[in-house]
């Protein structure tokens, strides 16, 4: 039994302690916006925020999040998230879209930490998120665009 908060709601799940958070959220809680891409913290498709910090849910045992706050792509909100999503839509970043939940979660975390990131900052923060459609150029532009919006 593990109790934690997800997108502002308290939940208790009864799964093995070592079950990765990703599978708990997808299969037990039915929130399937966070994706499985590698299972070994290599691709970022499963990125969630744990107490505001981006984590790879595929390698985070559910026991690690007991009593903590998890936010998924379904629950991320606020001005940074809005600016990121608006920029993504405005620039038509997506192709297949499968990586994009993770890209959005990583981009929101980056901008929350660093409101005016350089290309090098973006490379550092986003290089854990693979996009096999290679939408990287638009991701980079969209992050700058969102930063401009936030500066207001």
């Amino acid at each position: 039994m593990t109790t934690f908060q997800i997108n502002g709601r308290d939940v208790t799940v009864s799964v093995e302690d070592d079950t990765p958070l990703l599978w708990v959220v997808r299969d037990e809680l039915g929130l399937v916006g966070s994706k499985f891409g590698c299972g070994v913290a290599q691709c970022g498709a499963c990125t969630m925020h744990l107490d505001g910090q981006p984590v790879r849910a595929c390698v985070t045992p559910v026991s690690d999040v007991a009593g903590r706050k998890v936010t998924t792509i379904e629950g991320i909100s606020g001005s940074v998230a809005d600016a990121v999503r608006d920029a993504w839509v405005k620039l038509d970043v997506v192709q297949c879209g499968y990586c994009q939940s993770g890209q959005v979660m990583s981009a929101v975390a980056l901008l929350a930490e660093s409101p005016a990131p350089s290309d090098a900052d973006i490379d550092t923060a986003m290089s854990g998120n693979i996009c096999r459609c290679n939408t990287y150029q638009r991701i980079r532009t969209a992050i700058h665009d969102a930063a401009t919006t936030l500066k207001g």
Binding site: V32, K35, V89, D92, S101
Partner: peptide, 26 residues
């Protein structure tokens, strides 16, 4: 603009991986 940008930035877009049906086994 693409018709699918929005759903692909909110996590709403469903893929085969996300299919859950009553009684389904994995």
């Amino acid at each position: 603009p693409r018709l699918d940008s929005k759903a692909k930035t909110t996590g709403a877009r469903l893929y085969t991986q996300d299919v859950q049906l009553p009684g389904m086994l994995v």
